[in-house]
Simulated assay, not measured.
Amino acid sequence: MKLGVEPRFIPPAAPQHNGRHERMHRTLKDETAKSPASDRMEQQARFDAFRRSYNEERPHEALEQTTPASHWSRPGRLLPERIDEPWYDADHEVRRVRSEGSIKWRGETVFIGEALAGELVGLAELEDGGHIVRFIGRDLGVIDPALRFHRFAPPRARLRSAVETQRKPE
């Protein structure tokens, strides 16, 4: 998002919305991980061979039986040398997301999301006493007065347990 790339969410458990990507993962698993390698070096070699084959040798039906590498060209723009930290209005309190995806808020640990580890988020108070959590220009969710985070995007299955562990006993 710092570079202007916006996430697009699909409903949980709806691979038909992202079929090409899901198919690539199935092929990757079939060719590299069914009966995994005996060590990390051998496993990495399998991944490297798969990447080379998938992109440079294997024809793709969606590309009229050509390879992805034959369509790739270097981007016309370079990434910036330095990416500035997000800036928030004066009515926001700013917190840095910890490596496990949480922030310290009102004396409690609140899980926001692992994808934001190391990033600054802004929190602005709402009329009901909750706080909206923002990253750059995107509203991520709300921390309610009971200090529970409610995300606006559909929750990922593997994060649900992390969110549940952050809830205070009632």
Rank of each mutant, 00 (worst) to 15 (best):
Q65P: 00
P75Y: 10
R23M: 09
A124P: 01
K29P: 03
E6L: 12
N18Y: 09
K168P: 01
G101S: 10
L78R: 15
P86Q: 04
L159Q: 14
P12C: 01
R134M: 11
G129M: 01
K34L: 15
I132W: 11
N18F: 06
V5F: 13
A13R: 11
I136C: 14
G76V: 12
A37N: 02
T67W: 05
E85P: 01
L140F: 12
R138Q: 15
L123C: 09
E170Y: 14
P75E: 12
P155W: 03
L28Y: 12
A33L: 11
P68Q: 06
R58Q: 03
R8C: 09
Q44E: 12
R82K: 08
R158A: 01
A90E: 14
G101V: 06
L3Q: 13
R151Q: 09
G122V: 06
E31N: 04
G141T: 03
A157T: 01
E164D: 13
D30Y: 07
H131A: 15
R52M: 00
D91Y: 06
A146R: 10
H71S: 02
T27I: 05
E93D: 06
G129L: 01
V163C: 08
R40S: 14
E61F: 06
L140G: 13
S53V: 11
R96L: 02
R106V: 12
V133A: 05
K104E: 15
A14D: 10
V97H: 08
K104T: 15
P86G: 08
Q65C: 08
P7H: 13
L78C: 14
D48R: 04
I136Q: 15
A117S: 10
V5T: 04
V5G: 08
R46Y: 03
S38N: 10
D128H: 08
L63D: 08
E61C: 05
S70Y: 07
S38M: 10
L120M: 08
A115V: 08
T27S: 14
M1S: 11
H150K: 00
F149G: 00
H92D: 09
G141R: 00
A157C: 00
R95C: 02
P12N: 04
E61M: 10
R167M: 09
A90D: 13
D139Q: 15
P59S: 09
N55G: 00
V163W: 08
